[in-house]
């Protein structure tokens, strides 16, 4: 069974600091990591393979050349192969163009059974690419999966997280699943995995390799366009309450009284 995992390299948000004066990101020293939600997708793919006792995991990342690092990390955890989808022509892709491009790469791989993605990327937060890919590939999707209950050759039963609890959904295979944090705890890499990752050849697929239609990739293929970027006015810091804890508590309760009752 071929399992495809779609991953994105993002800035390590646990690292991100804001310059208090300019209110902009301090980029220096911020590492790039695999989107945290994609780590669950990688782990789930490895678990599926372990569970089945067979299979091949192909990880795909679309991004700049340095995204290769993310693919090697996925291999060091136990994925079999990494493919970098990278071309200057892809720059400026919005979620439409990204999902189109990724679907071209998956089609080129062919013969896939399960496609796994994180529920969203921590830098963009759109949660649009996974569902988009499923449309381009014309396969069913289940989003926000928190558990794979059962997995057979041609169908799977999964739990989809909702605001109130979860749905139990049966889906035919092939299917695209986006996963949430609850689904597992990602493992650390192994030494053998790291060795394999170091030596692994990471093919780079370009727009030409994927036979992409030009008007569907990159800036030109993206329906949306950024017209303005601005820094929001920072929320003003308020008042510090000072004194003994019991005095402060009384004061605060008084201040909030109307809001809470009203």
């Amino acid at each position: 069974m071929k399992i495809v995992v779609l991953i994105k390299q993002v800035p390590d948000t646990t690292d991100v600091k804001i310059d208090p004066e300019t209110n902009t990101l301090i980029r220096e020293g911020v590492d790039s990591v695999i989107n945290p939600f994609d780590m669950y997708a990688i782990e789930e793919a490895i678990r599926i393979k372990e569970h089945l006792g067979e299979g091949e995991i192909v990880v795909i990342s679309m991004g700049p050349p340095q995204a290769e690092v993310a693919l090697r990390e996925a291999i060091s955890m136990g994925c079999d192969e990494g493919i970098l989808v990278s071309d200057r022509k892809f720059a400026g892709s919005d979620t439409w163009a990204t999902s189109y491009t990724l679907s071209r790469a998956i089609k080129k791989i062919g013969d896939f059974k399960i496609i796994l993605c994180g529920k969203q990327a921590s830098d963009g937060d759109t949660a649009q690419v996974g569902p988009g890919v499923s449309v381009h590939l014309n396969i069913p999707q289940v989003t926000y999966v928190k558990k794979i209950e059962k997995l057979d050759k041609d169908k799977a039963t999964v739990e989809r997280m909702t605001e109130e609890g979860y749905d139990i959904v049966e889906t035919p295979i092939p299917v695209l699943l986006t996963v949430v944090k609850e689904i597992n705890e990602p493992r650390l890499p192994s030494l053998k995995g790291k060795m394999r990752a170091k030596k692994a050849e990471i093919p780079v697929w370009t727009a030409e390799d994927l036979a992409c239609e030009e008007d569907k990739v990159g800036l030109d293929g993206s329906p949306t366009r950024v017209v303005k970027i601005f820094t929001p006015p920072p929320r003003e810091g308020g008042r510090l309450l000072e004194g003994e804890p019991d005095e402060i508590s009384k004061e605060l309760a008084g201040l909030l009284k109307d809001t809470i009752i009203g």
Binding site: A127, G132, Y144, M161, P223, T224
Partner: peptide, 20 residues
């Protein structure tokens, strides 16, 4: 959960721009 799952698919099917 429903909105994001649905509208992303509709936007791709319609080749429309979608901002989350």
């Amino acid at each position: 959960v429903i909105g994001r799952s649905l509208i992303s698919r509709v936007a791709v099917a319609l080749r429309a721009g979608l901002t989350a």
